[in-house]
Design a binder for these strands. Structure first.
Length: 636
RNA sequence: GCCCACAUAGCUCAGUAGGUAGAGCGUCGCCUUGGUAAGGCGGAGGUCUCCGGUUCGAGCCCGGAUGUGGGCUCCA
């Protein structure tokens, strides 16, 4: 019988025996690939290595280095988790157990409340299953057979899943040892390939993500081919914890949240310096980019919020109050205030676009369970702006905003991705207007050459939006910047401009932020820099350290001279040894420590110690000032 | 809001069989005047988150509230 031919990733052809599996094909290519391959991508679709190889296919072998390969690896890990749980806790009902970014989870329903001690036991059982090295065997079955099986096993969630599978989907089961799960696959050939597993946490999760449904118990875990990789990953998690902005905010005395104000952050003097630097940077940039700054009131009348649509569409996030028997609301957004500014007098088309920037403090009611340090709070300062323009200015203006936001993120070295959110259920305005606005955003993105993902139904109630998502050190994404295009509010507030023709016309609005929220951005920055803020942001840029008490006058002179040049300087004249004060300064992550003793006093110099780099030697105060100024100018 | 866990000095944490609280760091005082990541000695500092219960007696056991953490849901 003649051999079969498949095309490999690099375009080369590979001959193989009829009836061989992808696994055998991989092994035939190289020993290494045979060992490392986890799954095969056949004509674009990921398949089991155990599947029979077929003639004339494009095949690519996936290893742990591939995202899809990792997903298969983790998916099999989640089956092992479920198997272990059912061995130790018979009667536990299984919901779903997918692979996620850095691991996997399984949602379980059990009378038993799982504890951390249970996790250790389950983990041990998982290792046993790995050691037992069960092959995973796929079997396609009829719906009737699947229903029968899971009815017999009393697995209500599986039955519900089967019922909701589209009619044309083949139902399949995967078996490993005594354990059988409903699963589309693909899977590793055998449980023995899962080298190292670790269960990380237990959390509640609603069945199918809906609060209407029962709360299940979710066990999170991760797995790697080698113990070493797992250890490295766990180390990374530890490092990330050390960078947690809540911890650093406390340690560096920057900001915090008191029990007296859940979700309402406090900024201490040092945190305030960073904040003010960010805001100064923002103001300077926005002046350059043609924005004018405004400030609008925190409390405005019910009538205004009814008109803007917030009263109907945003009520559950708002705080209300009465003044002299009249209803008022604390602003959850700055836009109505910006519109009132625009409306204070008529505008000519010659003035447009008008860009009103506002660092506006907004309050939003967030559910108690979602609060998280500075990242998720109940009051925050949006670096907002409202741009009023003619319809023909839309694309150009949106591209400008994208460029401005890009410039800001690059200043901090952040990577980000963009998402376009479309009309939500709870929306104002007609479908036509939404389509027009959404198309305008798409056009700007495409014209500017930006890649983006579409997020159906996630727009603001008044318009579609482009969101910017930054990635933090834990790999979490934070929504920061946003650009929202709005045809609705100009209508609600009946705002106009006088056109070339002398008639009134309706302007279009952009709502946008770059930082998103100063608070969240500062939280992200704190983690990004691990608290070691660059000199332009650092609360203390240099600290002068005295060697002995007799150097206090010289140290004060050095500090005064630097302060005169507008640097943020402190003197540590405590009666302690140099080593002690150095250690303190390093722990406080101060960019420069300047040691002043006899030698420096005599030479009119300072010994410079740069954060993380150690002693750089003696230079004059003037030279140091030049160096620091250069760091600040470069935002380095 | 929901599930689970946690809440002890300014901070980080011990407190093991219920018998009216401990350490390190920080702070204050004294000694030391020391050259690049912690000198020495001493002192002060706590209604053990709050409310209620069990008990002769509660930091510890029980119930509730509040807050925090990990998630779910929701968002900048």
């Amino acid at each position: 019988m003649s051999s079969l031919t498949v095309t490999l990733k690099d375009g080369s052809l590979h001959e193989m025996e009829p009836g061989s599996t992808w696994s055998q094909v991989a092994a035939g290519i190289s020993r290494k690939l045979g060992k490392e391959a986890l799954a095969a991508r056949v004509d674009g679709a990921v398949d089991d290595l155990q599947s029979q190889a077929q003639q004339d296919r494009q095949v690519e072998f996936l290893t742990f280095a591939d995202e899809d390969g990792r997903a298969v690896f983790r998916h099999t890990s989640s089956h092992i988790l479920a198997q272990a749980v059912q061995r130790l806790f018979p009667g536990t009902k299984l919901a779903i157990g997918p692979a996620i970014a850095d691991g996997f989870y399984y949602d379980l329903d059990s009378e038993h409340v799982f504890t951390n001690e249970d996790l250790a036991a389950i983990e041990a059982e998982m290792r046993r299953i790995v050691k037992e090295d069960h092959p995973l065997v796929r079997r396609d079955v009829s719906r009737e057979e699947a229903n029968e099986y899971f009815t017999l096993r009393s697995e209500p969630y599986k039955l519900e899943l089967i019922q909701d599978l589209p009619a044309d989907v083949q139902v399949s089961l995967y078996k490993q040892g005594e354990f059988i799960d409903l699963c589309r696959g693909p899977h590793l050939p055998s449980t023995g390939m899962v080298g190292a597993v670790k269960l990380l946490s237990i959390a509640g999760a609603y069945w199918r993500g809906s609060e209407q449904n029962k709360m299940l118990q979710r066990i999170y875990g991760t797995s790697f081919p080698k113990q070493n990789d797992l250890d490295e990953y766990l180390q990374r998690i530890e490092d990330a914890k050390r960078r947690d902005h809540r911890k650093l905010g406390q340690e560096l005395d920057l900001f915090g949240i008191a029990d007296e104000g859940p979700g309402f952050p406090f900024f201490y003097p040092k945190g305030m310096i960073i904040r003010n630097q960010l805001e100064e940077f923002w103001r300077q940039l926005h002046r350059q980019w043609g924005y004018q700054e405004i400030k609008t009131p925190m409390i405005l009348s019910r009538e205004l919020w009814e008109r803007s649509g917030h009263w109907d569409h945003y009520e559950e996030n708002m705080y209300f109050l009465k003044i002299d028997e009249e209803d008022y609301a604390i602003k959850p957004m700055n836009c109505p205030g910006g519109i009132i500014c625009y409306k204070r007098r008529p505008h000519s088309y010659r003035e447009l676009p008008i860009r009103y920037g506002e660092l506006g403090l907004v309050h939003r009611h967030e559910r108690s369970g979602v609060l998280h340090g500075l990242m998720r709070v109940r009051c925050f300062t949006q670096d907002d702006a409202h741009i009023f323009m003619m319809p023909e200015q839309i694309t150009g203006e949106i591209i400008k905003v994208i460029k401005l936001i890009d410039f800001i993120y690059k200043t901090f070295g952040f990577s980000y991705r963009m998402e376009l959110s479309t009309k939500p259920e709870n929306a104002m305005g007609s479908d036509e207007i939404w389509e027009q606005a959404t198309d305008a955003l798409k056009q700007a993105l495409e014209q500017n050459g930006n890649a983006y993902k579409i997020n159906e139904g996630d727009g603001a109630f008044y318009g579609p939006k482009i969101d910017f998502h930054l990635q933090d050190t834990l790999g979490r994404n934070w929504q920061c910047g946003t650009i929202q295009l709005d045809f609705t509010m100009p209508e609600c507030f009946d705002i106009t401009y006088i056109g070339e023709d002398g008639e009134k016309h309706r302007p279009v609005m952009i709502h946008r932020t770059a930082f998103g929220s100063i608070e969240r951005f500062l939280g992200i920055l704190t983690e990004h820099y691990a608290g070691a803020f660059p000199a332009w942001l650092a609360p203390v840029q240099a600290r002068v350290i005295t060697v002995a008490d007799r150097h206090i006058p010289v140290a004060s002179e050095v500090a005064a001279s630097l302060e005169q040049r507008d640097f943020r300087v402190e003197v540590d004249d405590r009666n302690e040894r140099v080593g002690y004060k150095i250690r303190d300064g390093e722990l406080e992550k101060i960019p420069y420590l300047l040691v002043v003793g006899d030698k420096e006093a005599e030479a009119g110099a300072v010994s410079v110690r740069k954060r993380g780099q150690g002693d750089l030697g003696r230079i004059s105060v003037g030279d140091f000032a030049v160096q620091l100024a250069s760091d600040i100018a470069q935002k380095a």
